[in-house]
Design a binder for these strands. Structure first.
Length: 581
RNA sequence: GGUCUGGUAGUUCAGUUGGUUAGAAUGCCGGCCUGUCACGCCGGAGGUCGCGAGUUCGAGUCUCGUCCAGACCGCCA
């Protein structure tokens, strides 16, 4: 070993020891006869001292070191006369006796510091330099610790980690697949898994009754701050369980992670049916760190001559406590907010309950003070509160109101960082109608079991069928989701039929699974968590990219290695592929 | 596929109504400095204003196109 210690571990108790350290030059401070150097490695920073009077040539060598040079030094640990309380090694320094340059470095294009001067684009191009920064090191370490604790917990519950293949086959449902041409089977393609879904079900058939995998998944869809083309799931499946068993098991996982990683005790995992979530929050991933739940006002506000409301399928409001004194300008800003194309409302109605008890609204023309008071009472509003109301198509307006609720939560500082409020959303619909393809799509995936009591209406009223499906939501982030699966060939065939597959198509796509179900498939179910999102949530980050060592940009490009890239004609020929552009 | 924002020194940014030699901070280079730790002080170098057209006597600034980056909508079982 070139080193006896790391740059983060020496303390005053080691004074007098001869040590050797290796690391990168963080900074060079020349004081005439004295030169200080901060030496950095993964573990921390240790100060080196060179003295012109004691060793002029060594001190001269030290002064020639540039930022990010890699060096190995030998010397003696000494107590500092001026200690630095800001760093763990701040009580000591190394009186250097020997200096070896292991490698030089070009001047890096941005500073390797907590508050770097480098922008996003540049740091992504030089990701290996960016990863030297403390912030990124912390994020990578957090990710590592969480992965270890996931394995610890699941191992302790008898889950075993089994790898499943990446080169699989394209399936008709769900996201677009990434495809890989097969050289040995010209004209045919593998697909990369969107998740190991069918394989984990086959493992249940095989009798491996508790499986998990921390596994990469691939989806060829447009990206966002919380989406990458390849992302990591904690993929889990269990046999001989019902929905409550699954939820209990993975509440245990969440509790374990909260405790071991953040030292936070989270006891409560309320369950909210999907339909309730939409009614109360307008969203299937509500942030329940604050209330401000929706109140529907159809009966109170319709029929008073206000066209927008009278024609609306839904009139819904929220109460912003203490906002009764909002100025015209602030209210206009909220109106502009809801009218943004992404939010999509046409206008905003407000009722100000003034601190003096008087009432002022944007629709005084249509409603008497008594009408208004009734609405205020419905919200149990107090003087000083503000009611915000949207009206229109129910789906659209719930979505807009959800955006407005979150915006008000932000403005009123109701989303406390460091507070975690998980909940389960349960009873998702099994199917949804897709306008584009004019057929039903599985909301979760086509192997999700319907609620037993809803099976009779599977063919007569498909959209009303509820599924044994659930999502774990924490602070408005969808952390994971799963379902109890179908383990019966007949029911699976029936569902494929509702989804519009012919028997031939179903056999071609999923015959292997249906065959397996004929050989003693146990009842089973599972869940998959978005590991990148979970780490980002725990790390209080904005973007999952900051918690992935080598992420891709919003066009799916890796700007460091410059991928994707064109293939040579030789390679294309070998694969039997012609490109059209 | 669409909407919005941005692109000026190595880097992060400023740049007025279109008008003389495009600025600041930081980094870099040189000099001074024996207790610094975001060291300090003095000096210096550093620019295809993303790219291409257009308008104009004159474009970093206005128009159009294009490329790149970011956020969002569609999309993401």
């Amino acid at each position: 070993m070139l080193r006896t210690h790391t740059c983060g571990e020496l303390r005053i108790s080691q004074t007098g020891q001869n040590v050797s350290l290796c690391g990168w030059i963080q900074r060079n401070r020349e004081m005439g006869g004295l030169t200080f150097i901060d030496l950095r490695d993964r573990y921390g920073i240790t100060q080196l001292v060179f003295n012109m009077e004691l060793n002029a040539s060594l001190c001269g060598d030290a002064r020639k070191l540039g930022r990010e040079f890699v060096v190995c030094i030998q010397g003696k640990v000494a107590e500092r006369s001026n200690k630095n309380p800001k760093i763990p090694t701040g009580d000591i320094e190394i009186l250097v006796e020997k200096l070896t340059i292991l490698n030089t470095s070009k001047v890096p294009p941005f500073t390797i510091e907590d508050h770097t001067d480098g922008g996003e684009e540049l740091r992504m191009k030089y990701r290996y330099l960016d990863l030297r920064r403390d912030e990124n090191k912390r994020n990578m370490l957090l990710r590592h610790r969480m992965a270890i604790e996931v394995r610890n917990y699941l191992n302790s519950k008898n889950f075993i980690e089994i790898e499943t293949p990446f080169l699989i086959k394209s399936t008709p449902e769900g996201a677009r697949d990434y495809v890989v041409p097969s050289r040995m089977n010209e004209g045919e393609f593998y697909a990369l898994p969107q998740s190991p879904q069918t394989f984990k079900q086959l493992l249940m058939v095989a009798g491996y009754d508790r499986y998990f995998q921390i596994v990469r998944c691939f989806r060829d869809e447009d990206l966002r701050a919380d989406r990458q083309p390849e992302f990591t799931q904690i993929d889990c499946e269990m046999s001989f369980v019902n929905q409550d068993d699954i939820l209990n098991t993975f509440e245990g996982l969440a509790t374990h992670l909260f405790k071991t990683i953040l030292d936070v005790d989270v006891a409560d995992f309320p369950q909210l049916p999907y339909e309730e979530a939409l009614k109360l929050y307008g969203s299937d991933k509500p942030d329940i760190r604050f209330g401000m739940t929706f109140i529907e006002l159809n009966t109170l506000m319709k029929g008073k001559g206000f066209r927008v409301v009278d024609d609306a399928g839904l009139v819904v409001g929220i109460k912003a406590e203490g906002c009764g004194e909002y100025s015209r300008k602030q209210l206009d800003a909220l109106t502009d907010f809801v009218r943004k194309p992404q939010v999509g409302a046409t206008g905003l109605v407000y009722i100000k309950y003034n601190p003096d008890g008087s009432i002022k609204s944007s629709v005084d023309k249509f409603y008497s003070p008594e009408d208004m008071k009734q609405v205020l009472d419905e919200f149990q509003a107090k003087p000083g509160d503000l009611i915000l109301i949207l009206a229109g198509d129910p789906d659209q307006i719930r979505s807009s109101m959800s955006d407005l609720r979150l915006e008000m939560g932000k403005r009123l500082n109701l989303m406390t960082s460091g507070e975690f409020k998980p909940l389960w959303i349960v009873d998702f619909p099994l199917l949804e109608w897709d306008e584009e393809s004019q057929r039903y799509h599985a909301k979760h995936h086509p192997f999700t079991s319907p609620k037993e009591e809803d099976i009779p209406i599977l063919e007569s009223d498909p959209v009303s069928v509820r599924a044994n499906a659930y999502d774990l939501v924490i602070n408005g982030v969808e952390i994971g989701g799963g379902s109890v699966r179908i383990h019966n060939k007949e029911l699976q065939q029936q569902l494929f039929k509702v989804l519009g597959f012919s028997d031939e198509e179903a056999t071609a796509q999923f015959g292997f699974l249906m065959n397996a179900f004929e050989y003693g498939a146990p009842p089973h179910g599972g869940i998959a968590f978005g590991f990148d999102r979970w780490v980002t949530l725990f790390g209080r980050g904005e973007s999952i990219r900051d918690f992935i060592a080598f992420p891709k940009n919003n066009a799916g490009r890796d700007v460091m290695i410059d991928s994707p890239s064109a293939l040579s004609n030789e390679k294309l020929n070998e694969l039997g592929i012609e490109t059209t552009r």
